[in-house]
Design a protein around this nucleic acid. Sequence first.
DNA 1: ATGTTGACTGAAACCGGTTTCATGAGACCG
DNA 2: CGGTCTCATGAAACCGGTTTCAGTCAACAT
Lengths: 331, 331
Amino acid sequence: MGNSRVNVRRVAEMAGVSPATVSRVTRGTVPVSPELRERVLRVIEEHGYKPSHFGRALAEQRHGALGLVFPGLSGPYFSELIQGFEAEALETGDSVLVLASHSRADTDATVIDLADRVDGMAIHGGTVSTEAIAKVADQIRVVVMASESGPAQASVSVANDSMKALTRHLLVDHGYRKLAFVGTPDGSPDVTTRWQAFLAAHKAARRKPPAEPVRVGLQQSDGAIAAERLLDGDDRPDAVVCANDETALGLMLSALGRGLRVPQDVAITGFDDMPMAALARPALTTIRQPIRELAATTARLLADPLGQPAGDIVLPTELVLRGSCGCGGAP
Amino acid sequence: MGNSRVNVRRVAEMAGVSPATVSRVTRGTVPVSPELRERVLRVIEEHGYKPSHFGRALAEQRHGALGLVFPGLSGPYFSELIQGFEAEALETGDSVLVLASHSRADTDATVIDLADRVDGMAIHGGTVSTEAIAKVADQIRVVVMASESGPAQASVSVANDSMKALTRHLLVDHGYRKLAFVGTPDGSPDVTTRWQAFLAAHKAARRKPPAEPVRVGLQQSDGAIAAERLLDGDDRPDAVVCANDETALGLMLSALGRGLRVPQDVAITGFDDMPMAALARPALTTIRQPIRELAATTARLLADPLGQPAGDIVLPTELVLRGSCGCGGAP
DNA sequence: ATGTTGACTGAAACCGGTTTCATGAGACCG
DNA sequence: CGGTCTCATGAAACCGGTTTCAGTCAACAT
């Protein structure tokens, strides 16, 4: 097939025009007389000419790609993130370059390296050092997700403080006395904030501070690991607040598998409201966060050539009460 | 900071050499006399020069990026896939450009569009039409994953026929009489093959053909949906064979949530052997497939400039018997 | 009839590297 | 001492578009 053996100059030559005109026709930026336009289009059609991405990128000084950096974790959260981000990027004709691997040691270097292959970069909280972010932001536009903004970059995150309302609900409305928290503060800004809200709610309700968090990751298997530590002993908590739905569901599966009843023997809550949360039995009490929206907003900030509305954008979250915390008639 | 305002010619000028020499120093392809090399390196250091990705890509006719196309699904499977792919790509200095969105309607167009931004493309089975693959393969190297190879592209997949051994185990070793299959054949080549193996095992054991598959997706929530169809009626199956671990775990969670015992009331099996499978209670009987290896092999085929060992590479899988099928002392 | 304006168009510069090719110098061989 | 070979090096071509700048021509106003 007439493939990429032809370039602008060849096309121009064959159409009897200048390369400039060919470019004007393909881009459609400047009017071209119908006659020439027609001639050019015919040649393009016949020879299957397509402007080279290389040449165009060089000339425009634009990669047409956005970077997306996130911790190499499994689960619906990051899938949703990618898709939300990508859908928005496609809107503007950008491609998405992901960085998900994680030796943690050389992540910084890799990210900095990535910086000159993309026009903008979205970095998920808890993946890259502050210095590396600064270096990248020095070169291209950066938006951090689920984290705090910095001097050179905006941020998009969600209202993690709903966790306070959820904790309060468990303590006050249900009267649970002993709550456990599953997740690793410091692991990510999100979890840190949720843990702090958890603490704050205890304080606000004048309860004594809760036990140390069960420091595990954010995957479903981590919920199962947490189950071993929380459910097998004698001092089982009344309710377990998990940093996300994944761990909550892992924990629930383990609890049920041990013959415990949820919420009678142990209440469980999550964070995310992923599809499975509503379908579990009992359905999972959780906090809904707009993941897609988070990603899409980030992509939009990166793509928008207009001024950055600097600072932090915080998307709303919503407490979703279902059976697993003890609410509702049917468990 | 001395940023990208400088280019080869500037550096060359300042170092008192030709651009060619600068290039030779940065690439290290051809020996340069110690003196000049030193001078050039000093200038580079002082002005923070870094070769532009644009210029280099254009000159080398190489993007330094690989494409990865997969269905926009959640879950550990695809996370693992991305990471395995990316880890391998980083090895060779390539970036990874993903396409995960799925309007299905314009996916073909998007994929073809992506083809001239990358040097090679990995396409997951069941995402793109054969014609689109052909078009892309006409332009760049293509490897399909978890699918069959085609005239112009190699493939990497796993031995799905272990599903036959698993089914036989349930029918013969455990003597279950009524098996159900959860998953949508035709949805993806993987599921198709697994379903066929499931059928073949019935035939080989001289059992009457099983019921129609429960046609749901591959996510955990789909397992919960399948549960509604399979577990609530009177004609509950003895054992449910799921197309992957995700759905199996969703189903198990639903079963336990309904007060059913696994495997006594219903046995459940999966496919993948993801981390959660071993940690569930009861632990999940499944088939282990090397997802990372699948992705890494694919990336290697794409990056390797040497001749394509055309045809299909099939990676081995392994039957993993645990409690959920009725094996083992402890459930 | 002449100055002005506006719309198209092409030549040339530009984006930033890499690589071929020719040359000059020094080393080695006879 | 002359011829050949090797090696480092620079000039120039090349990769493939986009855009500025200047110029042509026709329409329009005065």
